[in-house]
């Protein structure tokens, strides 16, 4: 019999003999992967939101009244060279006035007459996390009267992302450990049930891989089934959540399920097979004293 055929046959026997533990093993792998995949989907959405807010994030600076256009241009050239700055745009007092009080505004004429607007600049950022430092640096320029940094939302989002990454990683690690131990225990039981057979295999000259192969394959199948279950749960769950958000909360632009699925599939399959293989390898190494 071809080795792969034998591996599959033996693996199916093992799975059927240990059906209940196999179900437990697949379930815990699936739970870990739902958590891992859920974290991935959540962080993907958060990243998209951060990217969107980042694109909007900018530092606005206003000059003292009476600063000449030449000085303003000089400062613009200086600011453009700051690290993390993508683009600096001059905003004249007239432009600013137009933006705040468009001509169709009934108070526009009065405001124009009574209020004095300063010239300013809009600084678009390459990296939002540097916005605060750039704003502080611009504030030190003598001719600058006031600086606004409008990316507090991005900063908060980044902080949330960091916390979720940390908490999520810890949770995934705990679940992964539980999954490894469950797979390992299941394979342990299978090996114990076939102890006599394995002893005879070793006696009559079976190679280590001949003996180990079906158990490793069994672990891999647990992982594979776990990842398929997790994928089903996540795809269905996220599909529904996406539809809900699209309908009820249109201001939140969630990541399209179609664009997240291929990476999710690869992540879940890879992690599932790795959990299964590693879990079974731990038992095989501990129990089978073969080369």
């Amino acid at each position: 019999m071809k080795p792969l055929g034998r591996y599959l046959r033996e693996t199916l026997i093992n799975l059927s003999r240990n059906a209940l533990m196999s179900v437990a093993s697949v379930t815990i792998i699936a739970a870990s992967l739902v958590l891992l995949g859920g974290l991935y989907v959540f962080v993907s959405n958060l990243n998209a939101l951060v990217a969107k807010e980042t694109a909007k994030a900018e530092v606005t600076a206003f000059f003292q009244p009476g600063v000449s256009r030449e000085t303003v241009d000089k400062r613009i050239r200086e600011i453009s060279k700051y690290p993390g700055v993508a683009e600096v745009t001059f905003v004249s007092k007239e432009e600013l006035m137009r933006r705040l009080f468009p001509p169709d505004n009934p108070h526009a004429a009065l405001v124009q007459k009574e209020m004095k607007f300063p010239d300013g600049v809009e600084v678009r950022l390459e990296r939002p996390e540097e916005g605060k430092a750039i704003a502080a640096r611009i504030a030190k320029i003598a001719e600058v009267r006031r600086v606004n940094y409008g990316a507090a939302v991005v900063e908060r989002l980044l902080a949330v992302k960091r916390a979720i990454n940390l908490g999520g990683t810890v949770a995934v690690l705990i679940f992964a450990l539980a999954a490894l131990l469950t797979v390992s225990s299941t394979i342990h039981l299978t090996i114990s049930a076939r102890e006599q057979e394995i002893g005879i295999m070793q006696l009559v000259g079976a190679t280590a891989w001949y003996i180990k192969g079906p158990f490793l394959l069994e672990g891999m199948i647990h992982g594979l089934l776990g990842s398929l279950v997790a994928l089903l749960v996540l795809a269905t769950g996220y599909g529904r959540a996406y539809a809900y958000v699209e309908q009820r909360l249109p201001f939140i632009q969630a990541v399209d399920p179609g664009s997240v699925t291929p990476a999710l599939l690869a992540l879940l399959l890879g992690a599932g097979v790795a959990f299964g293989l590693l879990g079974s390898y731990l038992s095989v190494r501990r129990l089978l004293h073969v080369g």
Binding site: Q202, L203, V204, G205, A206, T207, A208, V290, G291
Partner: peptide, 9 residues
């Protein structure tokens, strides 16, 4: 260890 099976044959 990996040579042992061949001895046992």
């Amino acid at each position: 260890p990996r040579e042992v099976p061949y001895l046992r044959r």
